[in-house]
Computed example of a mutant assay.
Amino acid sequence: MRLDKALAQAFPTLSRARLQALLAEGAVSREGQILTSGSAKAQPGLHVVCLPPVAPALPQPEAIPLMVLYEDADLIVIDKPAGMAAHPAPGCETGTLVNALLAHCGDSLSGIGGVARPGIVHRLDKDTSGVMVAAKTDRAHAGLSALFATHDIERTYIALTRGAPSPASGRIQTQIGRSSSDRKKMAVLRSGGREAITDYVVQNAFAVPAKAGAAPLAARVACTLHTGRTHQIRVHLASKGAPILGDAVYGSGSPALSVKAAVAEAGLTRQALHAAVLGFVHPVTGENLRFETAPPPDMAALEALLAAL
């Protein structure tokens, strides 16, 4: 019998999924030896399962500084720094935007999204910087969610890419879903998935070879989202042969040595992607709101270095 199945019979209060997680965490042993594979054959002997302390059901407030662009009784707009996750998740339970918002807004945050992500109606990847909005009331939460569901939101991102997409402007319209080779990644699919639409324009091309028709070594690309699929811009630009610089997941291939040196000198340790513009109609007051921020220092430094190539 498989070990996880045998343990589930021996510990009926624990699911196989829970036991598999405990195995992965090194919390299961047999005769003092740590076991990690649930698919291994169960062996006779004394098995011990060490249950870690129960984590709090609710995220805890943390006094993390926020760059607030706008705030009223119903919503708050912030410029999220790179490195901050939107909400708690396994392996990232603290230091998130939710923890910061709980401290900043207190009990006024909306809870429609569940206890794990109060007030969050959309998210940016942990290592993507830029403008985000969060709801402080249920009414605002419902209204913002409806706007995102119907794509009645203005969203423009700035990316620094290896090479440049061709042509210099256009629309990328594909199906995006989980990669069949790596379930942690998204991919452009021939069938299945969900429709994803990105308009892009190359704003600046860097280190353009003298040879006619040759591609630049890097570029600044503005991308406007018409849908909001997971990793959409990162996947779409990679599909055009111009992955985002610093993207460890979708940035296959190495940039030119001069570009690689610029990335290192700028201190960029994440994908060079910034949510620069967020515009929407206030779901409660009906006011037209639009917010725009410049890329943070790591991207700004990289762009200056690329411009000097």
Rank of each mutant, 00 (worst) to 15 (best):
Glu265Val: 07
Val54Glu: 15
Ala57His: 06
Arg220Glu: 14
Phe291Tyr: 11
Ala21Glu: 15
Leu147Thr: 06
Thr137Val: 07
Gln232Arg: 02
His282Cys: 11
Glu31Phe: 08
Arg162Asp: 15
Leu245Arg: 09
Leu3Lys: 02
Val77Ile: 07
Arg16Met: 06
Val133Arg: 10
His47Val: 15
Ser254Asn: 08
Cys223Ser: 05
Ala264Ser: 08
Gly228Thr: 10
Val259Trp: 00
Gln203Phe: 02
Glu71Pro: 05
Lys260Glu: 12
Lys260Pro: 00
Thr13Trp: 07
Leu189Gln: 07
Leu278Glu: 13
Val249Phe: 12
Ala10Val: 06
His122Gln: 07
Ala304Lys: 14
His282Ser: 10
Gly38Asn: 10
Gly91Ser: 14
Pro209Cys: 02
Ala264Lys: 11
Val202Ala: 05
Leu305Trp: 00
Ala222Asp: 11
Phe280Glu: 12
Ala308Asp: 13
Val133Glu: 14
Gln203Lys: 14
Ala207Glu: 00
Val28Asn: 07
Tyr70Cys: 06
Gly213Arg: 05
Asp74Pro: 01
Arg178Glu: 06
Asp152Gly: 15
Ile78Gly: 04
Arg194Thr: 09
Ala86Cys: 13
Thr94Asn: 04
Pro53Phe: 04
Met67Phe: 09
Leu245His: 11
Val259Thr: 04
Pro88Arg: 04
Lys185Gly: 03
Arg220Pro: 03
Gln60Val: 00
Gly228Asn: 07
Val281Lys: 14
Glu71Asp: 08
Gly113Trp: 05
Val259Arg: 00
Pro243Gln: 14
Ala210Glu: 14
Gly170Tyr: 03
Leu245Pro: 12
Met1Ala: 14
Pro118Ser: 10
Lys136Ala: 08
Ala218Ser: 05
Ala116Ile: 12
Ala301Trp: 08
Ala256Gln: 10
Glu154Cys: 02
Asp182Trp: 01
Pro255Val: 07
Gly95Ser: 01
Leu58Asp: 08
Gln173Cys: 14
Thr230Trp: 06
Gly170Leu: 02
Leu309Ala: 00
Ala196Gln: 03
Asp138Phe: 05
Ala40Phe: 03
Gly193Lys: 06
Leu97Met: 06
Ser108Thr: 14
Gly91Thr: 13
Leu237Met: 15
Val208Trp: 01
Pro243Ile: 13
Lys260His: 03
Ala146Lys: 12
Leu75Pro: 05
Arg117Ala: 07
Gly113Phe: 06
Asp247Thr: 12
Val188Gly: 03
Lys41Met: 03
Leu69Gln: 10
Asn288Leu: 10
Ile244Gln: 13
Ala308Thr: 05
Tyr70Ala: 02
Asp152Val: 04
Lys80Tyr: 06
Val121His: 09
Thr285Glu: 06
Asp138Tyr: 05
Ala146Ile: 04
Ile64Gly: 00
Glu62Ala: 01
Val249Ser: 14
His231Asn: 14
Met67Arg: 15
Gly119Tyr: 04
Gln203Thr: 11
Ala238Thr: 13
Pro295Glu: 04
Ala308Phe: 00
Ala222Met: 10
Cys223Asn: 04
Gly192Pro: 05
Asp4Glu: 14
Arg194Asp: 09
Pro44Asp: 15
Thr150Tyr: 07
His282Val: 11
Leu75Ser: 07
Ala248Leu: 12
Pro61Ile: 00
Gly177Met: 09
Lys136Gln: 03
Asp107Glu: 15
Ala196Asp: 01
Gln232Tyr: 03
Arg183Phe: 09
